[in-house]
């Protein structure tokens, strides 16, 4: 997705993992993914640079769709769709 599309995307769940470092955001994402429906979009907020690279790998392994990331002030928003 393009940056504009990501800004306007409808998110079903937000996981705020800004207070935790690797592998914290991954664990938070894993816990949250069970609470949303297939086709729903989840955003993960993380201040950990590694998460931006790790979440796409996690999506690939778990069969979810990685949509992209937005850079905010001091953190990232990583978007994914549950498959």
């Amino acid at each position: 997705m393009t940056q504009e599309e990501l800004i306007n995307v409808k998110v079903a769940k937000t996981v705020d993992a800004r207070g935790t470092a690797c592998p914290g955001p991954l664990l938070e994402a894993k816990k949250a993914i069970g609470t949303i429906k297939v086709g729903d979009i989840m955003e993960i907020l993380s201040a950990d640079e590694g998460t931006k690279v790790d979440i796409p790998k996690w999506c690939q392994k778990q069969g979810h769709e990685y949509l992209g990331a937005l850079e905010e002030k001091g953190y990232f928003k990583v978007f994914m769709k549950k498959k």
């Binding site: 592998p23 991954l26 664990l27 994402a29 996690w58 392994k61 778990q62």
Partner: peptide, 11 residues
């Protein structure tokens, strides 16, 4: 432990 948790998070 970090590697283990990351792996477990990936099922």
């Amino acid at each position: 432990m970090v590697i283990s948790l990351a792996a477990a998070a990936m099922d």
